[in-house]
Deep mutational scan, measured.
Amino acid sequence: NQASVVANQLIPIQTALTLVMMRSEVVTPVGIPAEDIPRLVSMQVNRAVPLGTTLMPDMVKGYA
């Protein structure tokens, strides 16, 4: 099973992502693949992302 990127904390809207905000976890449905974590650093979320939420491509500006 492929690991996805999951929020390690509440990430407020417009926040630039850092490594400490994300973790990898095998979840359903599958979100952004964990191997993309380095690419996500400094990208902004376009909505508030609660703790434990799987990051989906449409939540990160410039990802999809």
Score class of each variant (00 low, 15 high):
Q44V: 15
T18K: 08
V60K: 02
D36T: 08
A7Q: 02
L10A: 14
M22T: 01
P12L: 07
P33K: 08
P57G: 07
L19F: 12
L55T: 00
P50D: 15
P57F: 07
N8T: 10
D58W: 14
Q44P: 08
N46G: 08
Q2S: 14
A48C: 08
L55H: 01
V45K: 00
D58V: 08
A48S: 13
V41G: 01
D58Y: 14
V6R: 01
A48E: 14
M59L: 05
V60H: 03
D58T: 09
Y63P: 04
E25F: 06
V27I: 06
Y63E: 03
E35G: 15
S4E: 01
G31C: 03
G62C: 07
N8V: 10
T54G: 01
I11M: 03
A34C: 07
P50C: 06
N8D: 13
V26D: 06
T18S: 09
V60Y: 00
A3H: 11
A16K: 12
I32E: 00
M43E: 04
T28V: 11
Q9D: 07
S42E: 10
M21L: 05
M21K: 00
Q9V: 11
P38D: 09
R23I: 07
L10E: 11
D36I: 07
Q14I: 04
A64M: 15
V60N: 00
V27H: 03
K61D: 15
T54D: 01
P29N: 05
E25W: 06
G52S: 05
I32H: 00
Q2W: 14
V26E: 08
L10H: 15
V26K: 09
S4I: 02
P50K: 11
V49W: 03
T53V: 13
L40V: 04
S4H: 01
P57I: 06
I11A: 01
P50V: 06
T15N: 04
P38I: 10
T28E: 14
T18C: 05
T28W: 14
A34Y: 06
V20D: 15
L40R: 00
R23G: 08
P12W: 04
M43S: 06
V20I: 10
I37F: 03
G52N: 11
Q2Y: 10
M56A: 06
V45R: 00
Q44T: 14
K61A: 08
G62H: 09
E35N: 13
E25L: 10
S42H: 11
Q9N: 08
V20M: 14
I32L: 04
L40Y: 02
I37W: 03
L51H: 11
Q2D: 09
A7D: 01
I13G: 12
I37V: 06
L17Q: 00
T15I: 07
E35C: 06
M21F: 04
N46V: 11
S24H: 08
I13C: 07
L55R: 00
V30R: 14
A7I: 04
V41H: 03
A34H: 06
T28M: 13
V6T: 05
I13E: 15
T28Q: 10
Q44Y: 15
M56Y: 08
N1H: 15
A64W: 09
T15M: 09
G31M: 02
L19S: 09
P33S: 09
P38Q: 10
L40F: 01
M22P: 00
R39L: 10
Q2E: 09
V27C: 06
S4R: 00
T15W: 05
M56V: 10
A16T: 12
L51Q: 14
L10I: 11
L17H: 01
N1M: 15
R23K: 10
E25G: 12
L19Q: 09
T28H: 14
G62R: 06
L51D: 15
S42T: 15
P29M: 04
K61H: 14
V49F: 02
M43G: 03
D36F: 14
V20H: 14
M59Y: 11
V26N: 11
L19V: 11
L19D: 07
A48T: 14
M22D: 02
P57W: 14
Q2G: 11
T28S: 15
N8Y: 04
T53D: 11
A64N: 13
L10V: 10
R23Y: 06
P12H: 08
M21R: 00
R39K: 15
I13V: 15
Q2K: 14
N1S: 15
A16L: 11
L40N: 01
V30G: 11
G62N: 10
G52C: 04
I37N: 00
V6W: 03
E35H: 13
L17G: 00
T54C: 05
T28A: 11
Q14G: 15
V26A: 09
R47F: 08
R47H: 10
A34E: 07
R39G: 10
A64V: 15
Q44C: 07
L10Q: 14
E35M: 12
I13W: 15
I11P: 00
A7K: 01
K61W: 12
V20E: 12
M56C: 06
I13F: 14
Q44E: 13
M56I: 07
D36K: 11
Q9Y: 07
R47G: 05
I11F: 03
M59K: 00
Q14L: 14
S42C: 08
A64K: 05
E25Q: 13
A7F: 03
S24A: 14
V27P: 00
E35T: 12
Q9P: 01
E25M: 11
A48G: 07
V45N: 01
M22G: 00
V30Q: 14
L40M: 06
T15C: 06
P57D: 05
